[in-house]
């Protein structure tokens, strides 16, 4: 069974949702405290949402120095699947594992609402079981979710097919409606929407299963 490590920073608050979602798609989740120095025993790693280290300074700015992040970097460098959700996405950009940055929402409003995203590429550990153009209903819950990067980075991301998801209606001012991106090797993905919160029709949407079942499947060809 696929073992998925869910990293817990002081201030994380979506780790149990993420773990339950992972278990619901047939994998086995385990919590990993942020002081861990080795995650090589896992098949995949999730950095969940929340407010790691209080989001002091900037979201993710302090979390990137937690000991576990060196281990996550090694894991990612060796091709291991890494997923950052919301605050986890912010941590991955601060750590330099993903390009760009997340800044305060346009309009300075905390957004907690359903959102629709469109799959831009299926060449990533998160989207390889979806199809290009597929629309998914996945909620957002963030204050700093406006994706930004310089023109050079943007051009490179387009050329290398690193834009994974776009909002159907841009809620936060993200550049080019970007909701999720991946690294050049497609094994590290970050997104602001919360797939772990869209796991049941009863709660509005089960579209998160499409993404997370793919993420834990382990069938994505590692580069």
């Amino acid at each position: 069974m696929t073992r998925v490590g869910v990293v817990v920073f002081p201030g994380s608050n979506c780790e149990y949702d993420a773990a339950a979602a992972v278990d619901a798609v047939g994998a086995h989740s385990e919590m990993v405290w942020h002081t861990a120095t080795d995650v090589s025993g896992f098949d995949a790693i999730i950095l969940p949402g929340g407010f790691a280290h209080g989001d002091y300074l900037r979201p993710g700015a302090l979390a990137r120095f937690s000991p576990v992040m060196e281990a996550v970097r090694d894991f990612a460098d060796s091709g291991g699947p890494v997923l950052g959700i919301c605050n986890g996405f912010q941590v991955l950009t601060e750590a330099g594992l993903l390009p760009g940055a997340l800044q305060k929402n346009r309009g300075l409003t905390f957004l907690c609402q359903p959102s629709r995203v469109r799959v831009v590429t299926t060449d990533s550990v998160l989207t390889h079981q979806s199809f290009v153009g597929q629309e998914l209903s996945i909620p957002i819950n963030h204050f700093s979710g406006s994706y930004t990067c310089d023109d050079l980075t943007y051009q490179s991301m387009v050329e290398k097919d690193q834009i994974v998801l776009r909002y159907v209606e841009n809620p936060n001012g993200s550049r080019d409606d970007i909701a999720g991106v991946c690294n050049e090797n497609k094994n590290v993905v970050g997104l602001m929407p919360h797939p772990e919160r869209s796991m049941s029709e009863l709660l509005g949407s089960a579209d998160g299963k499409i993404l997370l079942s793919g993420f834990v499947a382990g069938t994505f060809a590692r580069h």
């Binding site: 800044q103 305060k104 929402n105 346009r106 309009g107 300075l108 406006s146 930004t148 001012g173």
Partner: peptide, 13 residues
């Protein structure tokens, strides 16, 4: 401070 060209919603408000 934010680099020139980076949107500054706080400054704009």
């Amino acid at each position: 401070s934010l680099r020139p060209g980076i949107a500054d919603p706080e400054g704009a408000t």
